[in-house]
Design a protein around this nucleic acid. Sequence first.
DNA 1: ACGAGGTCCTGCGAGC
DNA 2: TGCTCGCAGGACCTCG
Length: 274
Amino acid sequence: MPELPEVETLVRQLRPLIVGRRILGATLSHDNILDGVTKRTLLRALPGRQITAVERRAKHALVWMGDRVLAVQPGMSGSLLRFSRALTAAQQDYAVLRCQLDDGSWLVYRDVRRIGTIRWLDASGWDAYAARLGPEPLDPEFTAEEFASRLGNSTAAIKKALMNQRVVVGVGNIYANEALFAAGIRPSRRAHQVARKRLQALHGEVRRILAAAIASEGSTIRDYRSSAGEAGSFQDQLYVYGRGGAPCRSCGASLTSTHAIDNRATVYCKMCQK
DNA sequence: ACGAGGTCCTGCGAGC
DNA sequence: TGCTCGCAGGACCTCG
């Protein structure tokens, strides 16, 4: 399930391979992943465009073509893949958008569950869209004070607030669980009731864990694969996610698993997280 | 402004 | 063996 580290990984891997390439042609198997653009418009717009930059913002991979951007939001099972030659039958499974590039390679958006979204925007359209997004957690200018005041404004459960992309971007279910464990905060605590010092500590843990996950090229849980089709390894460093009922790696108590917050899998240690 | 619940979608594993 | 069902979940929606 691509969160910030997984999208950052695929962007880093794709960038040197596709920047400068020109799109020769494109096909789309399902148009229900498109938002704000029709299949007809997109497939007419792509051919002939040159890829000029590949960036990440929040959980979006941005493929810039001059002043236009293909903004790919992988949802939970989506990924951007690059194949050096024509796709085999197996590689075509779940390939939603396929772009043939001018060096004979293919840029493919693959999405088993098709919960992802693809947008086609000009620069001002992207700016308007991005205005709804919160700050980047790894931005050096994003301070613990700003993080704490943004979270502290919310009366929702802190885990839900942490996953709210308007508060701070990039943190999904896996890393929210992990960061709250590392900071010793129970996920159900109301954000505005958590001590300021704890919120500031959480800022550090979010950044530390996201950076470590990027260094491990993301977590591979079920569907996620990098742009080269490879698995990340951060799943081996998870302390709570997916470990309900198993012993806490810190104190040994049995980890609690619940769906009480926003109907999402939440795992925590009732001894270590208050 | 919050929580609860629904929606999209398919694969997988548990249970009968 | 073969079926049904619940779950996985990011982001958005409506309703109360």
